[in-house]
Each structure stands twice: as C-alpha cells, then as structure tokens.
C-alpha cells in the first residue's frame, strides 16, 4: 500500500470523481451535467478497483454507466428544450440547502477526527468473485430473490407509467 503509484492513482481518481460531482452541481446545461455524472461514475468504479473489488467495478460500469446514465441522458433529451430560453438552474432554497450541507460537513469532520480506523487489509491474490457468488446464493439468497422481484416490479411500473394513454 505504500507504493507511490497507488498514492498517485488514488489522488488522481478521487480528484476526477469530485470534479465530476462538481460538474453535476455547476453545469448550466443539464446534458453536460449528465456527461459529468458519467465521468464521476467511472472514477468511482476506479476507486473500487483501487480497493480490490474488481467485480463491483465491473457491475458499476455495466449498470450505472451502461444503463442508468444512458437512461438519464434519454430523459434529459425527452423533456428538455436545451436551446430554448435560459432557465434558472437552482431553486430558491439555496441558503437553507447550504446550511444543511454545512451541518452535515461539520458532523462528518467531527466523526472523522474522532474515529480510529485500522489499515486497509492487503488485497488478496485470488479474486473474491467465487466467494461473492457463494454468499449471494447461500447467506444472501432471500435478499437476492426479493431484489429480483423488486426489479420486475420496477420494470412493469416504469412501462405502465411511461407509456402513452390509449385513446378510447
């Protein structure tokens, strides 16, 4: 873990993730904000790799970048007249929002200063994917099945909500 490459990679990836997040916050054009979100999601996948969770990184790229982000961009294109009049980016609640976030930051910094964490365990040679699959189909079998039901429900619900009303 003391390898300088690891340190450089961490700071680079973390910087990209935070820059992407700031882009989502500040871009005026919502489409650009969506692209910035994709950048941030990729960087988070790289953070997973740095933590030795390659399978999760793959899932992150497939599900978030491949599906969720594309869906969001589709929704932006379907609902926005990007070239139309300039629209306000922010609600009127800027100051309360800033106060809430500041409060969260204070609490977080307080906890992070107080807490003492052990070092990260070295990344094992073998991939953890066997163990993940084992646990997913034994210890976590019930949540696994429930979540597949949830996905089915979300699928049907989305189709019902988004389709056009039939004329009768």
């Amino acid at each position: 873990m003391t390898d300088w490459i690891y340190v450089v990679a961490f700071y680079g990836v973390a910087g990209v993730a935070l820059l992407g997040g700031l882009g989502v916050l500040f871009f005026r054009n919502l489409f650009h904000a969506g692209l910035s979100l994709i950048l941030s999601l990729f960087a988070v996948a790289s953070l997973f790799v740095l933590l030795g969770a390659e399978f999760l990184a793959g899932v992150q790229v497939l599900v978030y970048v491949g599906a969720v982000a594309v869906l969001i961009l589709f929704a932006v294109m379907l609902t926005q007249r990007i070239t139309a009049r300039r629209v306000r980016r922010y609600t009127r609640a800027l100051i309360p929002a800033a106060l809430v976030t500041l409060g969260l930051a204070v609490v977080t910094v307080f906890v992070m200063v107080k807490v003492e964490l052990p070092a990260i365990a070295p990344i094992p040679e073998a991939s953890a994917i066997d163990e993940l699959a084992d646990q997913l189909l034994s210890t976590y079998l019930l949540p696994f099945e429930v979540i597949s039901l949830l996905l089915l429900g979300a699928l049907v619900g989305a189709i019902v909500l988004a389709r056009k009303e039939e004329r009768r």
């Binding site: 300088w4 997040g21 953070l47 926005q80 306000r88 969260l104």
Partner: peptide, 28 residues
C-alpha cells in the same frame, strides 16, 4: 505517505456532500 481508509472515507463524504447540494438546489 500511505493511503488510509480515512482517505477513502473522506472522498466518499465529499462526494456525498456534493450530491446532497445537487439534490437540494437543482431545479430540474
């Protein structure tokens, strides 16, 4: 200089804060 778990926790906290600001302030 090494990367401790606190570094990752810090990045995560910052990202969470940015997300919270986006949720609370974005109009769209």
């Amino acid at each position: 200089m090494t990367i401790t778990p606190l570094h990752f926790v810090g990045v995560s906290a910052l990202l969470f804060g940015i997300g919270l600001l986006v949720v609370l302030t974005r109009r769209n």
